[in-house]
Design a protein around this nucleic acid. Structure first.
Lengths: 137, 137
DNA sequence: AAAATTACGTTATAATATAACATCAATATT
DNA sequence: AATATTGATGTTATATTATAACGTAATTTT
């Protein structure tokens, strides 16, 4: 159905909306149990409700998981077309995380082939260093 | 002291040796609690002993953490000179993990600058896909 | 409307990781 | 050589992160 097709691009369930709203509000990486605390007043009571929403939001490109922190952050590239090909910079001092949106980097990585010639569609890249603000201190 | 300088390059404590031996023997990524089970007979009894050894072994470039799996793997680039600048390929099917040793890739990543011109010394890159063996099936 | 899929709510528990503290060993410093 | 410092160990307890399992409800597809 056409309606469904249009809807599918953005359609989120009730809990998914609640969790996404919370993550977008925070603007920083948040941990699953912080999300749980933050959305308790919205009627979400238990970890599985949060983790299920997180899984779906990742699939739908709305959020990403920062693997080195076990935290979650809203996608800042609109509706992320490539939810499994992402790059971030992480400041070791203030722990601020910034999603990198660099077409040249993306192309380089998605074209990359290992020694046996295998090409990988997906990747997760996390840069570590000191951000500008922290350098200034 | 010269002796200490030479020794420092390779010196590992008792528990560090036990844990490293075990990880090297396995050749696949291993989880901390599997390590714990595997080294109980060597006299290591509790999680902190394992995690402390893991931390030091990472610092010393002997092993790496696969962040997306919370697992640990022996460095296959000898004594890794850059323990905080690593890349892996991970097969989604058999979960085999291979450390990538590609100077061009390393140079590209360590030269990378984000939009505000910040350069990051360290990075963790995990590629996801299907390995050759699994593709053949 | 029936069937299939997706989402929800709940309880319990598994898996991953660290805090805290006492002790011991190795190494620098005096 | 005695002392201070640092790094490592052993242990108990607990914090943090994540999922299994089950029944029910809502939504979508056929």
């Amino acid at each position: 159905m056409v309606n469904a097709m249009i809807k599918n691009q953005i359609s989120l369930s009730k809990n998914q909306k609640i969790v996404l709203d919370y993550i977008q509000k925070i603007k920083k990486p948040v941990k699953a149990y912080s999300i749980l605390s933050g959305v308790k007043k919205s009627g979400i009571n238990a970890p599985p409700q949060v983790y299920r929403a997180l899984d779906k939001l990742i699939e739908k490109g709305k959020i990403h998981k920062i693997e080195s922190q076990n935290s979650f952050i809203a996608c800042n590239i609109g509706d992320c077309a490539t939810p499994h090909a992402v790059a971030f910079s992480i400041c070791n001092q203030c722990e601020i995380v910034t999603e990198i949106n660099d077409q040249k980097l993306f192309k380089y990585l998605s074209d990359f082939k290992d020694k046996s010639g295998v090409n990988f569609k997906g990747y997760n890249l996390e840069f570590f260093g000191v951000c500008d603000s922290c350098k200034a201190i």
